[in-house]
């Protein structure tokens, strides 16, 4: 057994787990944060995407012990209680989700994408950047719309703040 210490959604948490425990299982089972999902075994679908030290990663392909000491943000920590992050709001506004299972990974991916490309996204870039996330419900049409809308809104917000 190993001790794992993480800062998750702004809170420092520690727990014992087997060394073979994946980060996603640590998050879901030890921390009870079940918004992060598992949709495949081969690191393809992206339902498990969280941010680790500011970057999107697939928590199904990282051991919890590897992540120990890191800062992790999950879907539950993206916005304040009862609030929606602009990306979450855009997914709702543009119907970028149906069954909701891929959604947390999609949203975390979109936030990372906007962080890296801020204000410069176009449809082709968004589609290319979604390579690591599979959705079976939406045909991606409205996900792409939502990401572009969130990018525009967040970029306008940044400009207004400057």
């Amino acid at each position: 057994m190993a001790k794992v210490t993480l800062t998750v959604n702004g809170r420092t948490v520690s727990g014992e787990c087997e060394e073979r425990t994946l980060l996603v299982h640590f998050i879901r089972e030890k921390l009870g944060l079940t918004g992060t999902h598992v949709g495949c075994d081969t690191s393809q679908c992206g339902a498990c995407v969280v941010h680790m030290d500011g970057h999107s990663v697939k928590s199904c392909s990282i051991l919890a012990v590897q992540a120990s000491g890191s800062t992790v943000t999950t879907i539950e920590g993206l916005a304040g209680q009862g609030e929606l992050h602009p990306v979450q709001a855009a997914f709702k506004e543009h119907h970028g989700l149906q069954c909701g299972f891929c959604t947390p990974g999609m949203v975390m991916t979109a936030v990372d994408m906007i962080n890296r490309h801020g204000g410069n996204l176009d449809e082709a870039t968004v589609r290319a950047e979604l390579e690591g996330n599979i959705c079976r419900c939406t045909g991606y049409h409205n996900i792409v719309k939502a990401v572009l809308a969130a990018d525009a809104e967040m970029s306008a917000g940044r400009q207004a703040a400057e």
């Binding site: 918004g35 992060t36 999950t74 979450q88 909701g100 959604t103």
Partner: peptide
């Protein structure tokens, strides 16, 4: 817009494995 979206968007959906 959908009433169910908020729980899915904030990680509060409750699936069988949860």
């Amino acid at each position: 817009t959908r009433k169910e979206d908020k729980r899915f968007l904030t990680g509060k959906g409750r699936y069988t494995d949860d």
